[in-house]
Nucleic acid binder design. Structure first.
Lengths: 336, 336
DNA sequence: TTGTAAGCGTTATCAT
DNA sequence: ATGATAACGCTTACAA
């Protein structure tokens, strides 16, 4: 592997000159530039990434922490981050957080120790306080899918409340009034918000929601199955169901089918996230679009702006959810 | 950030001694070891990753190239790689290859330039020849999901032929004889192999397969839809369908439903890969298990053995496929 | 505009 | 067992 030294020798200039042309510095004569380029080409020179990082204190790598690598939701984040990052000629160091606070903390420490220039975080277990402190530190941090008032500039988020509000409101406006809800785990802030959106839609419509039509699950298909089973066993009738995510909605649809509850004829179902497989389901799932891929890309732009000084970038912190209607919903019709 | 120098000063020993305890060298007295550890703890010392990489010529990072980051198939690879890598305290630099040879080549060059210690590749466009040459180079390379005879030791793979053979054979043995096939793009080696498995099952059963019951698609739902539509339009009857992957099978199921073809009563369907959402579909999809996650983990072990000298690891290059029967298949019953 | 030389924070090779 | 000291390949004042 040729080094900068050999390039300088072949080009007949100094190290610094070579370095300057590598980094597009101003104040280099066309002549030396040409000589250097020629030498580089001849030697098939490739700058040593590690050496540059050490000398410049800039690794051009961004740490990305997500709860899990696979799964449609996080996949979408990673793919957005990776593609936007490679546009900027930076790269992602991706780690998964596991399922408890300690692992998330370790993962963050790991990324910092690896000299990541900035961190993109998508975490559930770590406290607001820690995140606030972290973001005051020397490593830039941007947080996806979570809103923390004190560091709102560092957050890229949607209104989860609004999302489930839209879903519930739609059903309410289309004649449904007995609307069940399968929630995410209520220690997660987004699950709380989504639940609140459901409630708010009722409040705004001036009608009470029924606590008994409500079930706290865990965002998984297993939980969704349990939820629907329990709801059905209750014998409290409902003509619609909103689920806090698509996974659970898909499980609920399956349980409905197993129990001869037709979707949407007997029960309309709306999910949340608009994960890609929601369109593969039968019936195709109506859901709330969660622009997670866009948010991931915005997180990268945030890093470009705040860590790499691309000042002209404008950051959008909040994104909009949107109801996407497919086959799993219909207007309420009174049973004859 | 404290450096090794400050640790040495506080501990009252030399740089080298600190370095030695950091790297668990033998021949360090318990005494100095203790002093150094104490100093490290007091200063909350964290070794500089970049400096270590430069000095030791070892970055502890492994480049991972996949065609795309999202999608159930590649997701599974990434999650396997990441989790196994973090067990070994190494990390992944993940990039996606895009959809042509040039991008894949660029991506590989990018990873090499980033001083990755080894590469885990999952590529479609790059030629065997290039891969063979690459693997003779100084950067260790392991290839997932592809078999190249000349460098079979560097490959982690399944027999795609066997997989679709199992699927087709099963149908044949259960009374079906008019079995359609929707193929992947036939410029991909795995698509060819899978197609050949389908054919071989017929040959082995001594019956001819019908070219007209065969459609070349592209592994996507769009292609699967087209394929099923075309097959149905043909008017050549078939009672079973094997698809070269689950995406296409899911699309085929949908088209079947739209055309009042009941699955499995009128048509059994088998997919390939056993992607996680295949169990979410209705009916749940029978398919061929492709142990892609295990292969990904094995690829990491390969790297550990071949690049990091963990000699005692034993590598399994070939993995087995397996038929998993769910709801989309049934024994052939003659129409009355 | 160009070159010299001092870092960047380690590891590794020698002596001792 | 320990300590100097020279790499590792580059960036970056500072000088010229």
């Amino acid at each position: 592997m040729p080094t900068i030294y050999q390039v300088s020798e072949l080009a007949g200039v100094s190290l610094s000159s070579v370095s300057r042309v590598m980094n597009n510095h101003e104040h280099v004569s066309e002549k030396t530039k040409a000589k250097v380029m020629a030498a580089m080409a001849e030697l098939d020179y490739r700058p040593n990434f590690t050496a540059r990082s050490l000398a410049s204190n800039c690794s051009n790598s961004i740490g990305v922490l997500v709860a899990e690598i696979s799964g449609p939701f996080y996949s979408d984040i990673l793919s957005g981050v990776e593609s936007e990052l490679s546009n900027a000629n930076k790269h992602a160091v991706i780690v998964s957080g596991g399922c408890d606070e300690k692992k998330e903390l370790d993962a963050i420490q790991f990324l910092i120790d690896r000299n990541c220039d900035a961190l993109i975080l998508c975490v559930d277990f770590i406290s607001d306080e820690y995140l606030i402190k972290l973001s005051k530190g020397s490593t830039k941090v941007v947080i996806i899918n979570r809103y923390i008032a004190e560091i709102s500039d560092n957050c890229i988020f949607i209104s989860n409340l609004l999302g489930s509000y839209q879903a519930t409101k739609y059903l309410l406006e289309n004649g449904h009034s007995n609307i069940a809800y399968i929630s995410g785990p209520l220690w997660k802030i987004d699950a709380i918000d989504r639940f609140n959106g459901y409630k708010k839609a009722f409040t705004d419509s001036g009608i009470d929601f029924d606590e008994a039509l409500t079930f706290e699950a865990d965002y998984t298909t297993i939980g969704g199955r349990e939820g629907m089973l329990s709801l059905l066993k209750n014998k409290k009738p409902f003509t619609a169901l909103v689920c806090a995510n698509d996974e659970m909605a898909s499980a609920a649809m399956r349980v409905a089918r197993e129990n001869n509850v037709r979707v949407p004829q007997d029960c309309s179902i709306i999910g949340f996230d608009n994960v890609y497989f929601s369109a593969y389901l039968f019936p195709q799932l109506s859901t709330i679009e969660n622009p997670i891929n866009k948010m991931a890309r915005m997180a990268v732009l945030w890093v470009l702006k705040n860590r790499y000084n691309q000042k002209d970038i404008v950051i959008q912190n909040q994104f909009d959810t949107e109801l996407v209607l497919r086959e799993s919903t219909q207007v309420y019709v009174e049973k004859t």
